[in-house]
Design a protein around this nucleic acid. Structure first.
Lengths: 244, 244
DNA sequence: CCACCGCATTAACCTGTGTTATCGACGGTG
DNA sequence: CACCGTCGATAACACAGGTTAATGCGGTGG
């Protein structure tokens, strides 16, 4: 069930495009020093110099921002195979915290490994561009979700997104997040997340059981939430094709 | 006052890094066929095949998404010098509409011109990566703004962002947007935008006069809104330096 | 085995923002 | 010059979701 952490990133990239051996070697450098983080631990803090990045190989992490009044907004969720902190390459300091939500295995790597990739493997640079664009389109969906949908639709949309992103064939969704975290991601109070789960249960859209969510009727959940999977499906044909 | 449209993009890029002549030539190709669009006109529509992109040389445009129930979310605002549709390179179809908000002069160009840049000028590709990351950080701020700030803070933050992005030295801000558009950008009703302007006027933070907003006390507006300009300031030292 | 703590649930109450409607100012157009 | 449509201001009312607080459950450590 658990994926061996070496290769998480590779597998993710190979979904887009097959890799040359030197390209694979460059990517493998991003997963060299696995370290374990406890649930709740910060991997990296807002305001800090941004010269360490991470690949997640096990567990869930998030990017978050804590405002002056103590409220928190969760900005991204990261699952195994994702690279954490990509947009921060472009800034001197981190713009948000990165926090482990469960026990997390992650591999910190220096900025240098990224710039090496850009220098030495232009085709991989293309893929990073694609990944950044996909992250951007996920943020766009988040804006729409938070700005324009009711609590029930928001939660439904969130569940569908997680379900699609984790590529589960079954409808039982492992969701090791507290309702507070879900609320901070959807800009809802934890109390209202609870009410809204209740609501979705009454509509027979989901069933919940202590950390797993069973999606009763995926199609109906999709219709209900206004979900359109196009924003997750980047076109890999755009990047230069492998040449040798 | 008006900037000649040829060179808008060039100037934007030269803010980050000086350009070689072949690089400049590649970028100039993005501004070859200026066309005028009336206020309200669509430059490009969601769902359409995404193989035309635009540079804006005059006027204001936006990216928007219209939901099934007819509500609209404005996702980005574009001012002269910006490239419109960058993230859509990665998708088969446009994920949102692009619409002129004022009379707009824009130059459509085919996807090919972008891929040429990626092929022939790797250093420019770095800069595009930076730009995409900056757009992403602007979306992050939008999530935080919509998700976690009161209407008054939201509007204040919006005004400060526009002010910084348009690099005006004066405090009189040209804002040729209806309150409906501002509302759709901030996820507020137009009625509440009006109330909130009233509110900011009472706090002596801004004065309004038919399309221009005068920022009375920028520092206080910044404090009030929780604005931190870091998210607009990308580090240009990251991209490869010019070599010849 | 008990005490504790974090978490989900539920209820009662409160408030910020949406909705609907009206009015006046303005600007374009025949 | 009169008309019409668009926009901003304001008011009255409605409601989604926030806040606070009490309860109970399940895991964990002494």
């Amino acid at each position: 069930m658990n994926t061996p952490y070496r290769g998480c990133i590779l597998r993710q990239f190979e979904d887009f495009s097959s890799l040359g051996s030197d390209e694979a070697a460059l990517l493998a450098r991003l997963e060299q020093n696995p370290r374990e983080y406890a649930a709740g631990e910060l991997l990296s803090e807002a305001g800090q110099r941004s010269d360490a990045f991470f690949t997640v190989t096990e567990g869930w992490a998030c990017a978050e921002r804590v405002l002056a009044d103590g409220t928190r907004q969760v900005l991204d969720l990261f699952m195994p195979g994702q690279i954490l902190g990509l947009r921060e390459v472009s800034f001197h300091r981190n713009l948000c915290d990165f926090r482990a939500l469960t026990t997390v295995t992650a591999c910190p790597f220096p900025r240098r490994h990224l710039t090496d990739i850009f220098d030495e493997a232009p085709r991989l640079a293309d893929l990073f561009f694609l990944i950044l664009a996909r992250e951007q389109s996920m943020l766009v969906e988040r804006v729409i979700n938070i700005g324009r949908r009711s609590a029930a639709q928001r939660l439904a949309h969130f569940l569908v997104e997680i379900s699609v992103r984790s590529r589960q064939s079954t409808d039982a969704l492992e969701l090791p997040l507290t309702q507070t975290v879900i609320g901070d991601a959807l800009s809802l109070s934890s109390v209202h997340v609870s009410r809204t789960f209740q609501n979705l249960r009454e509509l027979s859209l989901v069933e919940t059981d202590n950390g797993t969510v069973r999606i009763v009727d995926l199609d109906e959940l999709i219709t209900f939430s206004g979900f359109d999977r196009a924003y997750l499906e980047i076109r890999s044909d755009w990047a230069r094709q492998i040449t040798a």
